[in-house]
Design a protein around this nucleic acid. Structure first.
Lengths: 242, 242
DNA sequence: CGAATCCTTGAACACCTTCAACAGGGGTGG
DNA sequence: CCACCCCTGTTGAAGGTGTTCAAGGATTCG
């Protein structure tokens, strides 16, 4: 217990330049001087618990957040009290980009497991952009990538069968884990079947059945939230519609 | 004919500050000095014809484009020669934001009717951001809005019935026409039923049937590509799932 | 005016959803 | 520490919604 607290304290002291996520996160391509400035602007939070909200929908937008460890889901609250999940964020990914426009968070963000984040006050970020031109370039690229991803997701959701959607989801997760140095073949899902279904536009029962079918066909192996990709080539073929 | 050419020539001389789209397009919130700089960076093109490509998928990214008049569809070419439509752009909207990340256009863009655009070389835009801080702020907001729109679209596509998707599409178009000073109750669709279906994840036959049904129920009136919204409140109720 | 594209309508079928029941497992409180 | 309970996941059957295939009609453009 004391160990954990100590470790957490250590992690919170790690500067952006020394962070294991520096090659994925905002710092990519920023020179050392800029990194120091960025470093001073960032608030490193202690881990938040599973199920707790990082911010609510409608809340005024003050800061961007970067996931340091754990994972987060973002969702739009629906009229009937339900939610529409808009995305899942892994370490090194940013939260709050959709709030810049209106100055309010359109989505809420909830931790799927114990999760720690870095907070970057947006006003300081904007003034920093004036001093650190590479920071501006980096942010434009991150936002462009975000737009691109949403476009790709949209193309995969509409006009694709449930099986293809789930395969696309798994391969997307796999690629993101790979970039983070985790295994791309075997990983844990931090979200429930209901969350996956909500995100992909499928009923949770359908997700469950699709997992079973992909396993029966020898493409994957599933045990609860533990997933192993057995035949990546076959999965890619399914995605293409073969 | 001579008149048309003359008018086109005139339009091409209009500065950003004098453009009727200045309140929608990139210039929003930019001071006069910045506007002059922006003005000099922009190339105003002669109209391109219906069906012609503004840029191809995979092409190197050099410039952002703003629609001045007409409309454009953007789409990802699919493996089988088909296309996945990612969006429709109206006057005052930007094209190419998804290309900043990789330096290549992931989507192609095709004119749906006779369309004119303004071209903004991206390198000049980036250096301009250093001189005109409000320009940077504006671009961050535009990109944030784009991310937000894609999120909203995704939420509407997945987990919604075909009818709800089509209603959402019509109301979205209506709101965008309103902002541009056109009628929000009666407008022309510049895209085909097949394009709408492709975009919404429905077969073109389904789109046709849904139009017929909405008309039979007295919510809209359709004649080919001419649409009139008869009961906007009723349409909003349909969207909510009533 | 002809050709091509776009739109509409019909019928059969596949896929996914909904409703329902049950099993397992992790967290909480006693 | 254990028991209970709620949450999560699984499986079955019936029904609805949208797709596919097919054909004919309308509109537009050269």
């Amino acid at each position: 217990m004391a160990q954990e607290t100590e470790a957490a304290a250590d992690v919170r002291k790690v500067a952006c330049g020394a962070c294991t996520l520096a090659q994925l996160c905002l710092p990519v391509g920023i020179d050392e001087a800029g990194l120091t400035l960025l470093d001073h602007a960032i608030r490193r939070h202690r881990p938040i618990r599973r199920r707790s909200l990082l911010f609510q929908a409608g809340q005024p937008f003050r800061s961007l957040y970067a996931v340091r460890s754990g994972s987060v889901k973002t969702f739009l609250p629906a009229a009937d009290g339900g939610e529409r999940i808009t995305g899942f964020r892994l370490p090194g990914e940013l939260l709050g980009l959709d709030a810049i426009h209106s100055g309010r968070h359109p989505c809420a963000a909830r931790a799927l497991e114990s999760t720690s984040v870095c907070e970057l006050p947006f006003e300081r970020f904007e003034s920093l952009c004036g001093d650190v031109p590479t920071l501006l370039r980096r942010m434009l690229r991150i936002m462009s990538q975000e737009i691109l991803q949403e476009e790709g997701l949209l193309a995969q959701i509409s006009n694709r069968s449930g099986e293809q959607r789930l395969v696309a989801f798994l391969l997307n997760l796999s690629a993101r884990f790979r970039r983070r140095g985790f295994s791309a073949r075997e990983f844990n899902l931090s979200m429930s079947r209901a969350d996956i279904g909500n995100y992909l536009g499928l009923a949770k029962e359908t997700v469950s059945r699709l997992f079973a079918r992909l396993q029966a066909e020898g493409l994957i192996q599933v045990a609860g939230r533990q997933v192993r990709l057995l035949d990546e080539l076959g999965l890619h073929r399914r995605l293409a519609g073969d």
